[in-house]
Amino acid sequence: MSPISLPQPLTAFTSGVVVQLAFLSLVPAEAARLRELGIREGCPVHILRNHDSLVCGVESSRVVLRREVAQNVFGVLQPA
């Protein structure tokens, strides 16, 4: 049986991995904007860059999140 992985902020993941989003710990208006951009619970997010800001791939689009925002978006590593 594989261990249950706990959701972690997106900033905790390295570039190149795919993360399945678990929840958004943001105020409703900000969470709504992210969901409209495609960053929503259950969707796979490809971490492209994780430096000052976080650049991620959602479907074919690329979304940049300020670090403080990415720290409040939680997900679990999707198996390769």
């Binding site: 105020v27 992210l34 951009l37 689009s61 690329r62 979304v63 999140l65 300020r66 403080e68 925002v69």
Partner: peptide, 12 residues
């Protein structure tokens, strides 16, 4: 209020 929110799409 908080000013930390910034998220935007990067078009190709």
């Amino acid at each position: 209020g908080d000013s930390s929110f910034f998220a935007m799409e990067l078009p190709p």
